[in-house]
Amino acid sequence: MIKRVILAVSQREYTAKLAEYLREEEAGWEIAAFTHEGALRRELQGDGTVDALIGEREWLERIDANSGKIGKLIALVEDPGQEKENEHWMEIMQYQSLPALLYAIRKAMGMEGPGSSEGCQVWTVFSASGGVGKTTVGLNLVRQATDRGLRVFYLNLEELNATSLLFGKGEPDGLSRLLYALQTRPEQWEVLAAELCRHQSQLRTDYIDAPEHPGERLAMTPELTAELIGKLRDSRRYDLIVIDPDSGASAWHRGLLDTSDKLIWLTIDDAQNLLKAEKLLRYWKEALKEKAYKLKFVMNKGNGGRLVNRWALPGTSPAFVLPYIAQWKTVDQPGRLLASPVFSGAIAELLDFIRSEDGSASLRSRKEEGGGDMRSYTRGAG
């Protein structure tokens, strides 16, 4: 059943962005947006009922809440709970990440939340050595997942990373502040996470700004990393968390295998890279005995599946091969790494492959569940 939802906020940019996001995420909602109170009043004088009116508190104070035409009144405020409680509406924080805001709206409307923490999958994009395109694969994976209606959190945990070229400069101490809160003030986690988790509109994903110095990531223990991921998972705001760590063989890296539902192990058709992967597998042999099902070996920069070097990793060949994009040699803008139809199509197929393999289809798109349209992809790798 279609739900009629009205947004009423005087700030044009805020209203437009929120309306666009709700239309993308909630196929069963009919969204109307107003930035002038007079126009809103004329709309409410017409026929028909409204399931939810979400707007500025000052506007809601002048609305007839007892008319019977409005199901739920939801006030957007900077700091909920500061004013005297009003029996007619609920308050939610206006400025927070879009997925968090949607979660709060759904809760205020009395709708079931986005699911339990068990419904959120954690996928780590990993490699035994650098230079295989982990971040490119991770970001494209995020893009394809959000295109399917999944709510995604991208977590870059590299010691040194350059994602600020795409995301922009934000709060370089964001990760350290969240980790500090985990250890000393866990009761402040929700408020701090809402403040520090940002949203990237092109990818439609939430993320934490990358640390300015490698020491912040190097100080993370396997236990602290697992706790951070667990907090994100338990927030119930995401269907998928994509982790992009640096390469390595430490206990911290192995801990990601324990925390993740799937570990997408990237390789390239290079003798040194394959040998390092083989050695790391032998080193982790005992730890992998009961976790091998989590590993998916994916070859990046492939040549149509024709290997030059001997494949000595599990299986007779890679589980999946991603194409080599020659044009990326001269890319000067990170955003162009998301614009290759051939690579996007291959990543889309990889996403579907992992979701359907080994029962991972439990990671369902909200558009699938709601009967919305899904984009169809055809792989174009040669």
Rank of each mutant, 00 (worst) to 15 (best):
Q121H: 13
E290D: 14
L240C: 04
D269G: 06
Q333C: 02
D258M: 07
P245R: 00
T163H: 09
Q200T: 02
A346S: 14
A271Q: 11
E20W: 08
G113L: 12
T15L: 04
E290N: 13
G28P: 02
G71Y: 05
D261Y: 03
E78V: 06
D79W: 14
R310P: 08
E13C: 02
L256S: 10
V298C: 04
G133V: 01
M1T: 09
L196P: 14
W311H: 04
A226Y: 04
D258N: 13
A348F: 08
E187N: 11
R42M: 07
V191Q: 14
I268Y: 04
T49C: 04
V152H: 03
M299F: 07
L40S: 06
L165Y: 13
D270T: 00
V5E: 07
M109C: 13
V142C: 15
Y154R: 06
F320E: 08
R41S: 07
W252Q: 10
G370L: 15
L139I: 01
F343W: 01
L179K: 06
G138E: 02
E290F: 12
L40T: 02
S201L: 10
L157F: 00
P186Y: 00
R364Q: 15
I54G: 03
G28F: 12
H213Q: 14
K262E: 10
R217D: 03
N161T: 11
T124G: 12
S127V: 03
E369D: 07
L263T: 14
S129Y: 04
A226N: 11
V137H: 00
Y103V: 05
L307G: 00
L281E: 11
R57C: 05
P245K: 02
T163D: 14
A219R: 12
D244Y: 01
D373F: 10
T205F: 02
F297G: 04
L178W: 07
E171F: 11
